[in-house]
């Protein structure tokens, strides 16, 4: 497969460091896929081939790993991927309302990417932050909790200005100080 992607020398150095951590190459697949996704924004088929070549592993293996984890993007995604949780707790607290609000606001459906390549929306399963439902995660990174339409507006604005929202630490009820 002709490949349009290439790792930079720094990437290759990082991959060497990763490989050195394991007695075999196979376990290096996951972290190397991360290196690739950070570099290219996705691990679409050609990138999978590149990873396989770099690690000297069967492409089928890399493909199997890449498709097993939803966090690896198997196709080109927007710069910011908005994973809106629609599992039980979030659903009950308006997860779908949030999803649909976003869809309308950005003019795309879940699973799609805006024309300018800025945003993708996905409807995802529980992200383990049920206590702060409804919530979403941005590009496998920051959680935005207790979503409201206003909060979404803010987030989109700041993302448009390339500013990731701050990580919000939400204490558990037993940890909140009684006053």
């Amino acid at each position: 497969m002709a490949n349009n992607y290439e790792f930079t020398p720094e990437d290759l150095k990082e991959i060497e460091t990763i490989k050195a951590k394991f007695p075999e190459v196979m376990p290096a697949t996951l972290p190397t896929l991360w290196v690739a996704q950070r570099r290219f924004g996705h691990v679409e088929p050609e990138v999978q081939h590149l990873v396989a070549e770099t690690l000297d592993l069967p492409v089928s293996h890399v493909h199997g790993v890449a498709t097993f984890y939803t966090q690896y993007y198997k196709e080109k995604m927007g710069k910011y991927v908005l994973d809106v949780c629609t599992t039980t707790s979030c659903q009950l607290c308006g997860g779908y309302d949030m999803l649909h609000y976003l869809e309308e606001k950005l003019g795309i459906k879940a699973g799609e990417t805006t024309k300018d390549g800025m945003f993708s929306i996905q409807s995802v399963e529980c992200l383990g932050a049920c206590g702060y439902a409804p919530m979403m995660q941005i590009t496998n990174d920051v959680y935005v909790n207790n979503l409201t339409e206003e909060k979404l507006d803010e987030v989109i604005e700041s993302l448009k200005a390339d500013k990731m929202p701050e990580f919000e630490s939400v204490g558990m009820p037993q940890h909140t100080e009684r006053s």
């Binding site: 069967p58 089928s60 293996h61 493909h63 199997g64 498709t67 097993f68």
Partner: peptide, 9 residues
């Protein structure tokens, strides 16, 4: 030949 894998989950 390592031609097959299980995709997705």
């Amino acid at each position: 030949t390592h031609q097959l894998t299980i995709s997705s989950r």
